[in-house]
Simulated assay, not measured.
Amino acid sequence: MTFISHWLGQVEYQAALAQQREMVEAHLKDADTPDSLLLLEHPPTLTLGRCAKREHLLVNEATLQQRGFALFEVERGGDITYHGPGQLVGYPILNLKRLYRSNELDLHRYISDIEEVLIVALAEFGVKGWRYPGYTGVWVDFEGDPAKIAAIGIKVNSKGITSHGFALNISTDLSHFDLIVPCGICEHGVISLSRLLRRTVAIDDARPCVIEAFRRVFGYENNNE
């Protein structure tokens, strides 16, 4: 079994959402549609998931507009999060029932597998990523405290087709997270790979690591990029 990875560059959030929906629809129309991984960056954007609390947005919408931030309410799980340049965003469009060879939808397994992809990819940079019980995403140790380096928010429809996905901070402007309570977590901060390593890491450096980790963790034979 193979998957197709697509590097889209920087894409407006709404355009990426429309592309995801088109690809999900293709899966629904044709069971032989290959699984895909969309990789991209977004311009500065805030999204509120199904469980988001508006009070976790710390500025008003007029301020966001003045600063050039887009704001969307979306159907993924989770609270509020930030997307922006220097952040590698991944949207897997997968048929989970086919991938896991089961008619039961094991969403905990799927989220754990995405976390594992990111943990494996970070290891290529000598970084130990880990799961924090009670929190979705991937964490690292930074100056003696836990810091979140990757957020995850997914949607899986009744047919087992996935959309939305993960956001891995590579060289993200971390000050942009000050506009929100990231993922509703106020007791811990966020971090980027570049700040953690104290050197600039490019998206192009991280992307192949994520693609290969995705292939290995999900058990694909190869990637038809």
Rank of each mutant, 00 (worst) to 15 (best):
S112D: 12
Y100E: 10
S112G: 10
S102R: 07
L99H: 07
R98D: 04
R101P: 00
T81R: 14
S102E: 06
H83A: 09
L105V: 07
R98M: 07
L99M: 13
D106Q: 06
G90I: 08
S112L: 08
G84D: 04
L94Y: 14
H83K: 11
L105W: 02
K97F: 12
P92G: 13
V89G: 01
H108T: 13
Y82M: 13
G86W: 01
I80A: 03
Y100V: 05
L107M: 12
L88I: 05
S112F: 11
N95D: 15
Y82E: 14
R98A: 13
G90W: 01
R109A: 08
V89Y: 01
I111W: 00
Y82L: 15
I93L: 15
P92C: 14
I80C: 04
H83G: 11
L105F: 05
Y110G: 08
N95T: 02
R98H: 08
I80F: 04
R101V: 00
R101Y: 03
Y110I: 09
D106A: 02
L107I: 15
D106M: 01
P85A: 10
I93M: 12
S102G: 06
Q87N: 07
G86E: 04
R101H: 15
D106I: 00
S102F: 03
S112C: 11
L99N: 11
D106S: 04
L88P: 09
H83L: 05
Y91I: 14
G90H: 01
T81N: 14
R98I: 04
D106T: 01
L99R: 15
L88Y: 02
K97S: 12
R101F: 01
S102V: 00
E104P: 00
Q87R: 06
R101I: 00
R101C: 10
Y100R: 11
N103F: 00
G86C: 05
Q87F: 07
R109N: 08
G84V: 09
E104L: 13
G86F: 03
I80E: 00
H108M: 14
D106E: 06
N103A: 05
V89A: 01
R109P: 09
V89W: 01
S102W: 02
G84H: 03
R101Q: 15
L99G: 05
G84T: 09
P85W: 06
P85G: 06
V89N: 01
L99W: 03
P85T: 06
N95C: 14
K97D: 12
S102T: 04
